[in-house]
Computed example of a mutant assay.
Amino acid sequence: MKLGPLNHVGVATPSIPESIAFYRDVMGATEIHEPFDMPAQGVKVCFVDTPAQDGGQGTQIELIEPLGEDSPIHGFLKANPKGGQHHMCYEVPDIHVAKAEFEAMGKKVLGEPRIGAHGTLIFFVHPKDMGGVLTEIMETPKDG
């Protein structure tokens, strides 16, 4: 299995507006995208772009806030009331091939591929099989 580039780091937060202020005022965010609801996943999402360094590329942060009482993020925020890193997301060229390869390695894939916040197919791999980090696998967007 060869993962593609890191696409984003997911950060659970009890308040997207407060997190936006932090990334803008403290971390120097270069772009703050419009927050949007993802009812099927029980979250509100906002992408924040951090500055590039030395001609490189910045990192995209996915802020994730619970949307409704059934949100899977509630459990994370109960254990981490101020929020924190929730997952890391890597790109792959073919989501179905990647899923089959993870399963063939004995990794616990959480659910079937579904549409994620970037509008492409995603799935998650359990932290116990990924060095303690919940890992999102995302099919590379067709527009790059």
Rank of each mutant, 00 (worst) to 15 (best):
K2C: 00
L3M: 11
G4L: 11
G4F: 06
L6N: 10
V9H: 05
A12K: 11
T13N: 02
I16R: 02
P17E: 05
E18A: 15
S19V: 06
A21C: 03
F22R: 09
A29I: 06
A29H: 02
I32V: 15
P35D: 08
F36Y: 13
F36G: 00
D37P: 00
D37W: 01
P39R: 07
A40L: 10
V43H: 02
V43M: 12
V43Q: 03
V45M: 10
F47N: 02
V48M: 04
V48C: 03
D49M: 15
T50I: 02
P51Q: 06
P51M: 08
A52G: 15
Q53P: 00
Q53H: 11
Q53G: 06
G58D: 10
G58M: 09
G58I: 06
T59Q: 12
Q60A: 10
I61Y: 00
E62D: 12
L63P: 00
L63W: 05
L63D: 07
L67Q: 03
L67Y: 07
E69K: 14
E69Q: 13
D70N: 15
D70H: 13
D70Q: 14
D70F: 08
I73E: 13
H74R: 14
H74L: 14
G75S: 13
L77G: 06
K78A: 14
K78N: 13
A79I: 08
N80H: 15
P81M: 04
G83V: 04
H87I: 05
M88C: 09
M88L: 14
C89T: 10
E91W: 09
E91Y: 14
V92R: 04
P93S: 08
D94G: 06
I95V: 10
H96W: 12
H96F: 12
V97C: 00
K99M: 14
E101T: 13
A104M: 01
M105E: 15
M105Q: 15
G106F: 01
K107C: 14
L110N: 08
G111I: 01
E112D: 13
P113W: 00
R114P: 02
R114D: 01
I115C: 05
I115D: 03
I115N: 02
I115W: 00
G116Y: 04
G116V: 04
G116I: 11
A117S: 13
H118D: 11
G119A: 04
T120A: 08
I122A: 01
F123E: 07
H126Y: 03
H126C: 02
M130I: 12
M130T: 14
G132C: 05
G132A: 08
L134G: 01
L134M: 13
L134H: 05
E136F: 07
E136H: 10
I137N: 02
M138E: 15
P141W: 03
K142S: 14
D143Y: 03
G144D: 12
G144Y: 09
